[in-house]
Computed example of a mutant assay.
Amino acid sequence: MKTWFHAVEMTLLVMVGLRVLSGLIELTAAGLMLRFNSVEKAIGLNAMLVIIGPTIFITSIAVGLIGMSDRLSFSKFAFIGAGVLLILIGIRK
Rank of each mutant, 00 (worst) to 15 (best):
M1C: 03
M1V: 09
T3I: 03
W4C: 10
W4L: 15
W4I: 15
W4T: 15
F5M: 12
F5T: 13
A7W: 00
V8M: 11
M10F: 10
M10K: 05
M10R: 11
L12A: 10
V14P: 04
V16M: 06
V16H: 01
G17Y: 03
G17E: 10
G17D: 09
G17R: 04
L21V: 10
L21H: 02
S22F: 07
L24K: 00
L24Y: 07
L24I: 10
E26M: 09
E26D: 07
E26G: 03
T28G: 08
T28S: 11
T28Y: 10
T28C: 07
G31I: 04
L32F: 13
M33R: 06
L34M: 07
L34K: 00
L34E: 06
R35Y: 11
F36A: 14
S38F: 03
S38V: 06
V39W: 06
V39K: 13
V39F: 04
E40C: 01
E40A: 14
E40T: 12
K41W: 07
A42I: 01
I43Q: 13
I43Y: 10
G44A: 13
L45Y: 06
L45F: 08
N46H: 04
A47Y: 06
M48E: 13
L49N: 13
L49C: 08
V50S: 11
V50C: 05
I51F: 11
I51V: 12
I52M: 09
I52A: 13
G53K: 06
G53A: 14
P54V: 07
P54I: 13
I56K: 00
F57S: 08
I58N: 01
T59M: 13
T59D: 09
T59W: 01
I61W: 08
A62S: 12
A62E: 07
G64I: 05
L65G: 06
G67M: 00
M68T: 04
M68K: 03
S69Y: 08
S69V: 02
S69T: 07
R71S: 08
L72A: 03
S73K: 00
F74Q: 12
S75Y: 04
S75K: 04
K76N: 12
K76I: 15
A78I: 12
A78F: 05
A78V: 10
A78G: 08
F79V: 14
F79D: 15
F79L: 14
F79I: 14
A82K: 02
A82F: 09
A82R: 01
G83D: 10
G83A: 15
V84E: 02
L85F: 07
L85W: 03
L85A: 15
L85E: 06
L85S: 13
L86G: 05
L86C: 09
I87A: 13
I87H: 01
I87N: 02
L88K: 00
L88W: 00
L88E: 08
R92E: 11
K93Q: 10
K93L: 13
K93S: 15
K93A: 15
